[in-house]
């Protein structure tokens, strides 16, 4: 066994505990129910070529922030439902912004030009923006696509999680988590189911320089 390999194993063993802990802590970072949106004033490039922010997307009754992308099969499976709900929410006084934090160097399908095409095809009436450093996703603690964060009229997080309980078979959805949360926000009521989960593609974070 080469000395370098032996040293590498020793170093790994010695850093074992910290490495495992770091991994264990990762999903708990980010914001919690009751927190405001982080990095809300950071400008991100929209598919219309202009820059906008979460703060600019905000409306009187609330703000829906969805981390999504072009390439992930789960994002694709939910895409039409996200667009339908997003466009309808705008009309109900809830601001909407969809953020792509994926590094297009990992998958070219997550590039800006594809985003523009997708927004046009799907008739998105809300901003679909590029998180050019992935720092917005990091600040939210977003880990996958799609992942929704809904803020109430006071700007505090009231719902975090999945779109509904069946990405693959829309006709078999039993729980419309995000729709129910938007309905509650519009009605000024407390969201009953504040945290949900679904499988999804991990966000392809850009490397920090």
């Amino acid at each position: 066994m080469r000395v370098s390999s032996l040293l590498a194993c020793a170093a790994l063993a010695m850093t074992l505990t910290s490495a495992a802990l770091a991994a264990d802590e990762a999903p708990t970072l980010g914001i919690s129910i009751g927190d405001p949106a982080p990095m809300a004033t950071v400008k991100m490039k929209n598919v219309n070529g202009k820059e906008t922010s979460i703060a600019e997307a905000r409306k009187a009754k609330g703000t829906l922030v969805v981390f999504s992308c072009n390439a992930c099969p789960y994002a694709k499976a939910w895409e039409s439902r996200i667009v339908e709900l997003g466009n309808a929410s705008l009309k109900r006084g809830v601001g909407v912004i969809v953020i792509n934090s994926n590094d297009p160097d990992v998958n070219v399908q997550d590039g800006y030009d594809v985003m523009k095409e997708r927004a046009k095809q799907r008739k998105m009436q809300y901003p679909y923006v590029v998180d050019a450093t992935s720092e917005v996703a990091r600040a939210f603690g977003a880990t996958r696509t799609p992942e929704a964060f809904l803020f109430g009229a006071d700007g505090k997080l009231v719902y975090h999680g999945a779109i509904d309980d069946n990405a693959h078979e829309p006709d078999k959805v039993e729980a419309r988590y995000l729709q129910d949360a938007v309905d509650a926000v519009v009605a000024g009521k407390t969201v009953a189911n504040q945290e949900t989960k679904a499988l999804g593609c991990s966000i392809k974070f850009r490397t920090r320089s």
């Binding site: 264990d24 880990t143 996958r144 989960k197």
Partner: peptide
């Protein structure tokens, strides 16, 4: 499925 394995798991893969 996610919470059945570990509630800390967000659902991201792998």
């Amino acid at each position: 499925f996610i919470n059945g394995l570990d509630e800390r798991w967000s659902g991201a893969l792998p």
